[in-house]
Design a protein around this nucleic acid. Sequence first.
DNA 1: GTACAAGTCGCAAACAGGCG
DNA 2: CGCCTGTTTGCGACTTGTAC
Length: 257
Amino acid sequence: MDEKLKCPLERPSFRMLLVGDDFSQHLPIPPAFIKNFNGRRLGKCTLRGPSGKCWAVELEQRRDGLFFHKDWPGFVKDHFIELEDFLIFYYDGGSEFNVTIYDKTCCEKDVKAAGKRPASDHLAETSTGGPILFKSENTFFIQTLKSYNLYAMLMPKDIAIAEGLMSSEGILIKETIMLQDQTGRSCLTNLYLTPDGRLMMTEGWTTCRKANQISLGDDIVFEFVKKGAILVHILRGKGNNSSSMVLSGSQPRKSKT
DNA sequence: GTACAAGTCGCAAACAGGCG
DNA sequence: CGCCTGTTTGCGACTTGTAC
């Protein structure tokens, strides 16, 4: 079974949507995919990108999973990989991954052309000790995790209407929405419309929160990347930090505190 | 293995305060 | 004053621990 598989379609693969502020530093490998290593402990692997270049990337085992770590930033830089790019990793059964990169338009990325463009114009980043920036062309809203929304997260009404989840008359249009976290995990989340016309994310949100170990005080950015799907960005430990700010995108009206 | 108790979770609804 | 939203609370369902 160790025989290398030749056809990419027959190879084990996993997909990864790049979100979060640290994808350029390390990238998690889905825990469910590790079984394809057949018990091997890979310390290093080779990533072959669309450019044809190979990068020897070290894998790091952490408490929260296995990560592409050392030299991964080089691969990111060399392929002009940006936030919201969609990567498919085809595993050859040994220690090599062929990586296909799609940009946010869902088209395969032209790495050479990407290199001629200026740097990302939609970026989530942190700066040490500085304000958190979140910038996106997509609709998004930010909530700080409080004790009362451990199990039910409110969604701003105007955004819920704009995204077609409910009508302006207060009628629920979609009963569920997909939350995708920074490791690519997805949680189907129930939407509950309260009698006073507000939209809450209930079951599924809790699953996502636990899976990502979101703590009280963490800021969570919910970004609508497409109809029916939300990317969850976690800005840890910034809930009490008044320096959090939003540069662009759709936002609920400023919350009162 | 089963039954019961206690704790936790999730849904639903209501209260309270700010703003136009 | 009405609307909107943050926050709190009640209660049933579910899960887990423990005694028998």
